[in-house]
């Protein structure tokens, strides 16, 4: 099961080449917004205002 050093460095080199186009700076800032699977806002009615609920309420013009 042990991976040889060559495989790992081959992968590293490949990744470096393939992802250089993706700049670290702004993506890093984005990472800060991660909140481990999206919290939802509780409405006064006691249910979660998910996108689906919002869609329904919008459709009723609430």
């Amino acid at each position: 099961m042990a991976r040889s050093k060559d495989d790992v460095s081959g992968r590293r080199d490949f990744l470096k080449l393939a992802t250089v186009g993706a700049p670290a700076l702004a993506a890093a800032a984005v990472a800060g917004s991660s909140k481990a699977m999206a919290a939802e806002v509780k409405t006064e009615l006691g249910y979660s205002e998910t996108q689906h609920v919002k869609a329904y309420l919008d459709s009723c013009r609430f």
Binding site: R12, L15, T19, A22, A24, A27, A28, V30, M37
Partner: peptide, 20 residues
């Protein structure tokens, strides 16, 4: 490793855009 951090950042970016 820096390239793994880069991968995580791309995943985070996609995650942030696709979650909400």
């Amino acid at each position: 490793a820096p390239e793994d951090i880069m991968r995580a950042q791309v995943y985070d970016l996609l995650g942030a855009l696709l979650r909400d």
